[in-house]
Design a protein around this nucleic acid. Structure first.
Lengths: 221, 221
DNA sequence: GCAAAAGTGTTCTAGGTACACCCATGT
DNA sequence: ACATGGGTGTACCTAGAACACTTTTGC
């Protein structure tokens, strides 16, 4: 047991894990097996250990639920309404992560709780204020697409410009002009053309590009 | 005494209070009177009460230290390195506030601790990781000048375009072209010209403008 | 009449948008 | 040969940058 002179809130991290699957922007949710909100879907997350850095905690949760590491993770917002958890005062520091679609076979690494991907546009009822958290993450992600290279984080090391364009179109939910898109992306000088091409069906093979600074999200504009 | 099965961190809020004084961007700091860092300068802040919303806590700290309320306040970032406070684990949710320069006579409302304004470019040694917090706040403020009307929050209800331009110049630390600045600001349609003018010295009086949505920060661009 | 800040227009450039056809491949 | 997605160029428009003089006031 741990005692304090003044009451202390509990602190958790919750992570909005985004990926692109089946041409949709999806979020990872887990089914709660304990009260409160037993049986309800919720963001993966948990209590911050007393000697653990907050971001390290988010990374750990991400690793436990998806088996992935080395992916983009950024602090989002801290939610702390006094009544957001019925048990005790819980303040949650939220993060969002972007997982490349070729990494997500590893989802079995989850700790046996049912972890499932949901379309962002078709979410179930969520525990706590997790609907707010996801809404905030979506807003941030959409904004960040416009002034940075975050979109690269959804894709493997090498990708085609059409794949990149699809990422933008799916997240922003609008079609983009192919010529303008390609010119703009290349004009930033943040993509290097490789000599490789991929044959992907009954049509001309597409050139692969790779980020100049893989893993790093650069500002554009 | 309060006891928990698992150890809980303490949670504080710290507020970076910005104002423009003497043609400089300044931050409010208080001198610490208790360990750790006794005698050191620090951001105003304190522990979150167990039933208090986090933003309400930041507002309360702001009120206690400056006597001001109804000013712009926005969550900044949550800092929680395990060793950032030598006493116990403390996670701090930071905010930044913008105070109009005509409100800051009220600084005597402070709870007797020495609260003083410092130039952002000439800060003393700071307690904890408060230098990082201020650096983060400055970055956010500069970014936000570019795509929103935050700058209005430094000024009284009515102000001249020259005053507004000075706010931009002081924060961005660069001179701006008067004609381009005025055209751009007016083009957003977020400022209403009043019929009033201020005589301010041996020169032509300047027209006063007021925000279309006072208190609200709008996005531009 | 002079000092001092307020106020005002035009030109140029760069980046964004709109838009239609040929190319390389598999079947 | 045809279906499929890959790849390319030009004209237009708008927003931002550069730049200098007249106006109104106080002394």
């Amino acid at each position: 047991m741990y005692t304090y002179e003044h009451p202390h809130p509990a602190v958790t991290t919750d992570v909005v894990v985004f990926t692109i699957r089946d041409e949709r922007l999806q979020v990872l949710l887990v089914k709660r097996r304990n009260p409160p909100f037993t049986g309800c879907w919720a963001l993966p997350g948990g209590f911050v250990n007393i000697d653990e850095d907050i971001e390290a905690c988010a990374l750990r949760e991400l690793q436990e639920e998806t088996g992935v590491s080395g992916v983009f993770l950024e602090q989002l917002y801290t939610f702390g309404a006094p009544d957001r958890d019925p048990r005790e005062r819980v303040i949650t520091v939220t993060y969002y992560a972007l997982v490349p679609h070729d990494h997500i076979r590893i989802e079995a690494a989850s700790d046996a709780s049912a972890a499932t991907w949901f379309d962002c546009t078709d979410l179930p009822a969520l525990a706590f204020d997790h609907d707010q958290v996801i809404a905030t993450a979506l807003k941030r992600l959409r904004a960040k697409l416009q002034y940075s290279t975050v979109a690269f984080q959804f894709l493997p090391d090498k990708f085609t410009l059409s794949e990149l364009q699809r990422v933008y179109e799916i997240i922003l939910d609008q079609t983009l002009d192919k010529r303008n898109f390609r010119r703009r992306m290349l004009s930033y000088g943040l993509l290097a053309a490789t000599e490789e091409k991929v044959r992907n069906g009954n049509h001309r093979p597409a050139r692969l590009y790779r980020p100049q600074t893989p893993g790093r999200v650069e500002f554009i504009k």
